[in-house]
């Protein structure tokens, strides 16, 4: 069982490292998109799958990261990596403030609150012209250079170079989440998801833990958003719109909400399905709607959940 897992992670790592060798801009660009969505979905799932809170406002934190990183790159001499981290920290801080209010409610009321706050971010991005550029957004964000010890400034203009940076940041982010969910803190979050009342009777200050999860989840979502600003060289307010929260929701459900790797696998499937549908028809939302229907009605464990419940035991029997 352990061996299978190592084979999976090793293969994934090798494949990810080799993608730029194809030399195809299209594949590298697509791979960056998958990585960004994977990290975004992992951040979202920290709150949904692990803590049991469904947020419809995460596009707001993703956008906060993107805008903050973009502004840092445009208006300050900060380097690329510092700007991306700065964007994530801003999103995390915003999440701590917004979360302070949101964790006062649960279930549908929580979903509505996150929706309202997420849309406030959207409204702010839209209306605060002097800072955010209004409906045009930020235009002409430089990608800048990366400062590496010993090497000095490394140019990131080439897409493959930026790909490796995104890969490194995503890997670090996933690593952090892995440690967190397997720590006592992560166990407490799952306990709150399973049984809020019992968790309180285990001595857990439930709200404070939910707030911490909310802030961390916002930080990770912001980190994902911050990587997009220097990639696209532009950020528009539409990234903050609530309908953009659909992507991490779909990726998470596709992969499986109660498994660690689910959201990452889901992010890959998300783009594979999108590419596939787009070759047949321009109406890929319709396709995703149908996929979401099937997932909710029949496969709430997602692909990884299905694998762990049905396929892995079969493989295990066969090879042992």
């Amino acid at each position: 069982m352990l061996a299978l897992r190592w084979i999976f992670w090793l293969t994934a790592a090798v494949l990810l490292l080799c993608i730029p060798l194809t030399g195809e801009r299209f594949y590298i660009y697509l791979a960056i998109q998958v990585l960004v969505l994977a990290l975004f979905a992992m951040g979202f799932n920290l709150l949904f799958g692990y803590t049991g809170l469904l947020s419809f406002g995460h596009a707001g934190f993703y956008a906060a990261g993107a805008y903050a990183a973009g502004l840092l790159l445009m208006r300050t001499p900060l380097s690329l990596l510092s700007s991306i981290l700065g964007g994530a920290l801003f999103a995390g801080a915003l999440g701590a403030v917004i979360g302070f209010f949101c964790v006062r409610r649960t279930r549908i009321y929580f979903a509505m609150l996150t929706l309202a706050f997420g849309m406030m971010v959207y409204a702010l991005a839209f209306d605060w012209r002097s800072v955010t550029g209004g409906d045009d957004g930020l235009i002409g964000i430089p990608r800048g250079a990366l400062w590496l010890p010993g090497l000095g400034a490394v140019k990131m203009d080439a897409l493959w170079a930026y790909y490796y940076l995104v890969l490194a940041i995503t890997a670090a982010g996933v690593g952090v989440i892995h440690r967190v969910v397997h720590s006592p803190f992560g166990l407490v979050l799952q306990g709150i998801r399973e049984n809020e009342n019992r968790a309180a009777f285990a001595g857990v200050p439930v709200r404070r833990y939910r707030l911490a999860a909310f802030a961390l989840s916002s930080f990770i979502s912001g980190l994902a958003g911050a990587m997009v600003a220097p990639l696209e060289n532009t950020v528009a307010p539409t990234v903050a719109h609530w309908t953009k929260s659909a992507a991490p929701v779909l990726a998470t459900l596709l992969g499986g909400i109660h498994t660690f790797s689910g959201p990452m696998v889901g992010a890959l499937l998300f783009y594979l399905i999108q590419e596939f549908i787009e070759r047949l028809t321009e109406y890929w939302l319709l396709g995703f709607g149908l996929v979401l229907l099937i997932l909710v009605l029949g496969f709430r464990g997602g692909v990884v959940g299905y694998y762990e419940a049905h396929l892995r035991p079969a493989l295990w029997r066969r090879f042992s």
Binding site: R179, V180, H182, S183, P184, F185, G186, V204
Partner: peptide, 10 residues
């Protein structure tokens, strides 16, 4: 009082 530890495995 160790439940806030988020860096070490349980």
């Amino acid at each position: 009082g160790t439940a806030w530890r988020f860096w070490k495995a349980v």
